[in-house]
Structures are given as structure tokens and as C-alpha cells.
């Protein structure tokens, strides 16, 4: 049985066409075929958010998305968040305010925060906690992450 299919999509603005297994996880294709290793794998089952990417304007867990569902979509990974050399305000705030320690959760946290601020430019603490509820961090204790998000939009 030939389960490989051509899937066409955009990653960080660039058009891609790949031969992939229809059930291959987007996470693996990003990391292994496209060498976009900023997207991390934590749990592989939707619990931790380390694999967060934005598909057509919504955050998703790329470990739960099979390639057949990516055809025709626009994807933003952590590699596409900065504008050239200019870091996104959220990225800069994470650096300035200790929002990252080991860094495994950081790409997912940053994307979830970028998505939150896109939808809600002045989130309350409750909104921030809700927006990041699907992203786990084992290092920071979250307070520095919440603070970084606040600093990013109060800048």
C-alpha cells in the first residue's frame, strides 16, 4: 500500500511541497524533514504544549496533527516569529525578564503568548493564565513567564 502523498503548505511564509505519510505527525515533519528544530517534543500526547505551532491563525499541538490535515494550510513555527534580526516583543521580553530557563517549553510558550496578544492585545492576568494553560514549564514556576507576557505588551 502506498500511503505517501504530496502535501502542499506554507511554513513561515515559504511554500513547501513534500511527499509524506498521511498520518505522519506535523511535529516530526517540521523537525526531521524541514529541519525546523525549534519546535520541541515533550509529551507527544497534547498535554505539554512544547510542540505548539500556529496553523491558519490558531495554536495547535503539532504532535496531534497528521500531515493529511496540513494540506493548503499556513503554518508559523517559532522560527517565523521574529522579523529578520528583530526579535518579536514577546521574545525580547522572555530574554529580559527571565521567561526562559532550560528553554524546552519556550518556543511553545512564545507562540501561545504571541497568539494571545494577537487576539487580545491587553490581556488580564486571568487571560494570560488561560491562554498559556496548555503549556507546561518545569523550570520557571510560571511567574517570570506571566511577567514577560505583561512586559511584552506594556512596552
Amino acid at each position: 500500500m502506498n500511503n505517501r502523498h504530496t502535501v502542499e503548505f506554507k511554513v513561515n511564509g515559504e511554500a513547501r511541497s513534500l511527499e509524506v505519510f498521511s498520518m505522519a505527525r506535523l511535529l516530526d515533519v517540521l523537525r526531521e524533514q524541514l529541519q525546523l528544530t525549534g519546535t520541541k517534543e515533550g509529551c507527544g500526547e497534547g498535554e505539554c504544549g512544547a510542540c505548539t505551532v500556529i496553523i491558519d491563525g490558531q495554536i495547535v499541538n503539532s504532535c496531534l496533527v497528521p500531515m493529511a490535515q496540513v494540506n493548503g494550510c499556513e503554518i508559523t513555527t517559532i522560527e517565523g516569529v521574529a522579523g529578520g534580526d528583530q526579535l518579536h516583543a514577546v521574545q525580547q521580553a522572555f530574554i529580559d525578564h527571565g521567561g526562559a530557563q532550560c528553554g524546552i517549553c519556550t518556543p511553545g510558550m512564545v507562540l501561545a503568548a504571541v497568539d494571545l496578544l494577537n487576539r487580545n492585545p491587553e490581556p488580564t492576568e486571568h487571560d494570560i493564565r488561560n491562554g498559556l494553560a496548555g503549556n507546561l514549564c518545569r523550570c520557571t514556576g510560571y511567574m517570570k513567564i506571566f511577567e514577560s507576557v505583561v512586559r511584552a505588551y506594556k512596552k
Binding site: 497534547g46 490558531q58 495554536i59 499541538n61 501561545a112 491562554g131 494553560a133 496548555g134
Partner: peptide, 9 residues
């Protein structure tokens, strides 16, 4: 239900 990424999907 889940977090936002689950709610989107």
C-alpha cells in the same frame, strides 16, 4: 476542556 490548542482542534 484541555487547553486552548486542544479547544482549537
Amino acid at each position: 476542556t484541555g487547553g486552548l490548542a486542544i479547544q482549537n482542534r
